[in-house]
Design a protein around this nucleic acid. Sequence first.
DNA 1: CCATGTTGAGAGAGCGCTCTCTTGACAGCG
DNA 2: CGCTGTCAAGAGAGCGCTCTCTCAACATGG
Lengths: 343, 343
Amino acid sequence: MAVPTLEEVARVAGVSRASASRVVNGSPSVGIQVRQSVERAIVELGYVPNRAARSLVTRRNDSVGVVIAEPTGRIFSDPFFVEVLRGISGGLAAREMQLVLVMSQSPEEERRAERYLTRGHVDGVILFSLHGDDPLPEHLHSQGIPVVVGGEPPRGARVSYVDNDNHGGAFAAVTHLIEQGRTRIATILGPQDMPAGVTRRRAYRDALRAAGLPLDESLEKGGEFTREGGQRAMDVLLQRHPDIDAVFAASDLMAAGALSSLHAAGRRVPEDVAIVGFDDSIIALSTQPSLSSVHQSMELMGRELANSLLQTIDARDRAVRRVVLETQLVVRESSGGPPTGQN
Amino acid sequence: MAVPTLEEVARVAGVSRASASRVVNGSPSVGIQVRQSVERAIVELGYVPNRAARSLVTRRNDSVGVVIAEPTGRIFSDPFFVEVLRGISGGLAAREMQLVLVMSQSPEEERRAERYLTRGHVDGVILFSLHGDDPLPEHLHSQGIPVVVGGEPPRGARVSYVDNDNHGGAFAAVTHLIEQGRTRIATILGPQDMPAGVTRRRAYRDALRAAGLPLDESLEKGGEFTREGGQRAMDVLLQRHPDIDAVFAASDLMAAGALSSLHAAGRRVPEDVAIVGFDDSIIALSTQPSLSSVHQSMELMGRELANSLLQTIDARDRAVRRVVLETQLVVRESSGGPPTGQN
DNA sequence: CCATGTTGAGAGAGCGCTCTCTTGACAGCG
DNA sequence: CGCTGTCAAGAGAGCGCTCTCTCAACATGG
């Protein structure tokens, strides 16, 4: 009943512990008959290597830390996390690496987490949901710990990251609206203290500029990444510019709120006002009319984060890897066709 | 620059490695001056115990596995997971235990996960999102691995679990509607292959029965845990029973869908039809009118899961622990006051 | 036929820690 | 004053594994 050790495997196979170890670790310099008899013994005994013992000598842990630092209930991003985690998990699974989740909810816990991460308990770290100028990534990096950041890293940090192509996606969304013949295009901005929010705004402007449309700051209205935020922003925009014929919202949730506002104001979507969201979340499919949106696969992001980190760990270099994931505009009912409104 | 070991701590403190170890582990039989000098040395060197070395001899890992088995994109529960994870993380942090996340997305990965969990890589396991008759909890339990299940465990499994008081919450919700003077109360059911869905339905019936109201199966309409599902169910219910004056929906998302349906049908909420949801998620606050709902703290659930598991690990017993967490009805606009409709 | 690789396999040290066993010091008691 | 009991502290084994070093066996070339 006792858990079998390498020693026993070696004994059963009639070889030395060293040879058994070589087989387990896939060393090339092992004769065919030794390999086979060890493999048979492994199956027979149901042997599984003891991670602790292995770590002790290799100084590796076969585990990566995933840090979700939450300043104070930044609820917005929650639904994404699970998807990203799933992606990371998938990317790690192939290598039998384990995912150690670290969620720090207080400064005290954050310090504990940092201590934990810097003391060699993990082979690398994936960071998430950074508040603007978090020093953690740079900190870990400077201690020689492989780090990859999900989303844009705090500015100034020379750190690897994987990000969605926010600019490309938003640019495509606005350009799409323009191509539909819309000319009075407003935008509902995301929080401007988040890189994604800033970038999407910039892309909105760039797209207008590229099409030769005039920029008008009063067509931009910000808010939180919530349904209510979107609704209120839309109310304001309609008041300012009753002749708006399109809206680019920085998130689906905001777009859904805007939809309610437009409804209440008697605007038809997409006939009077076309609207495009961002994220392509479940929400986009459940609104009435269904929402055009910019698709980004958070699961893919997770997978890329895992890959990127594993590469860094393997290479033992300190190269900065940047990966930008394509986003894709998904056109649904809310932005179909040219304006037909008459108000 | 090298990481300090216990050996060095002992040398600096001028004591034996054994004594240093005793101090680190808080053994009571250590003299005051020895303790102090060791503590000083620890601070001075920035010593942190090597987990691998410790595990090797103690045969403990100071880590628990959290398993999220996802049959096939059961998206419904996603938003909860992060909250539960946060709770677990918080509950574990105090004990310096680490959270190893295991997400199995394919049968192949599931087998890998099980192998991992049964090979003594974790001190205990928290299981989640079980599909009806998952054998995993019973399996782990029979291998002597401490297990706690979040939500109702598969029937028949003699396993510890932490669950929300679905019955109590749903009962309170329906009773509340009755107390408001509603008499034609419909319900939108959750999936009947999930324990929570079944229990909420039972509570709905129990509440009607307790109030002496007649049961009518045609007032029950099921669907998926989605907005659309709720909307379609409500459509059907209105068709069957135009005189419905209240609805208990098994989730906020479904309630939101029902709201759209009621809106489209020209029913006023709450004047004509009162409605109560379940989960008290963000959605409840962003609907128009705001949604009465049954509150359940998923974070608390996570914390209780962690506590329960830690207890089992410490006690080394195989006792089955059951914890039922109180749910609480939160009354908002959607169910305020008696019916005033005249249709 | 001997020097020289080349390749497969074993011996053994040691990773950092815990824990049992043993020892030493000292108090209490007859 | 010697004996026993108690408590603090040290010595040392050993957890399961990897990895370097060494060695044996055999092939190759001069």
